[in-house]
């Protein structure tokens, strides 16, 4: 055992992440095809033939100015990658397709001890916000404790101590421009708490939207 064995470099499909030779068993072989033709044509000789035939049929005049096959394949792959990226989010590990979630931030206020509040912010992660960072920022801004907590449905949410619903909207839209104020909703599931001043809040906030 004198010399080190060099690690083998395996070609992984950029679409389905499997080694290229397993694409045919992957979740979506059709989508991988353009990528395979470009990057690993020797693995699937049939594919290449098929594609060439198609291309020959398709391309008649306009593409002749450019590099024929490469131009066509390029366009196809770039289109595929962008569409597959969007779909990646929806897929669960089991390969089932998840329902697309509506992108919205829900702000909830829960009253405890009759006079103390917790403000819960749900759904920030749907906007690509890192929750741990967000909770830190919220805590700093409002000078309270803020933490990332696992919600009832395995969703992560941010719990902020104190009632900060009065200017959290502004804060969120300022810090993360991706979140539009239209997609922020209030939920008052805690109506049973008399102390919830939800009536006044409602009057205050409804004009906002």
């Amino acid at each position: 055992m004198a010399e080190k064995p060099q690690p083998v470099r395996v070609l992984y499909c950029s679409i389905c992440s499997l080694p290229a030779e397993y694409c045919e068993f992957g979740p979506d072989f059709e989508k991988c095809k353009p990528w395979l033709i470009k990057n690993a044509p020797e693995l699937y000789p049939d594919l290449l033939k098929e594609a060439n035939e198609k291309e020959a049929e398709k391309v008649s005049g306009q593409l002749q100015l450019f590099g024929l096959s490469s131009g066509g394949a390029d366009g196809a792959t770039s289109g595929q990658t962008s569409s597959s990226k969007q779909e990646e989010v929806k897929r669960l590990p089991g390969g089932k397709i998840k329902k697309k979630e509506r992108q919205e931030v829900v702000i909830e206020k829960v009253v405890r001890n009759k006079r103390k509040c917790i403000t819960i912010v749900k759904g920030l992660d749907l906007f690509g916000v890192k929750l741990s960072d967000a909770s830190k920022k919220l805590g700093k801004k409002f000078a309270t404790g803020a933490s990332v907590v696992k919600g009832p449905t395995e969703k992560e949410q941010i719990d902020v101590q104190g009632d900060i619903s009065y200017d959290i909207v502004e804060f969120i839209t300022d810090t993360w421009p991706a979140v539009i104020s239209l997609s922020i909703f209030f939920s008052f599931s805690c109506v049973l708490h008399k102390w919830c001043i939800w009536k006044t809040l409602k009057e205050d906030f409804v004009p906002l939207f």
């Binding site: 389905c16 992440s17 499997l18 080694p19 992957g26 979740p27 590990p93």
Partner: peptide
């Protein structure tokens, strides 16, 4: 196995 949770 390929494409299971750990692979991803």
């Amino acid at each position: 196995y390929l494409n299971d949770g750990l692979w991803k």
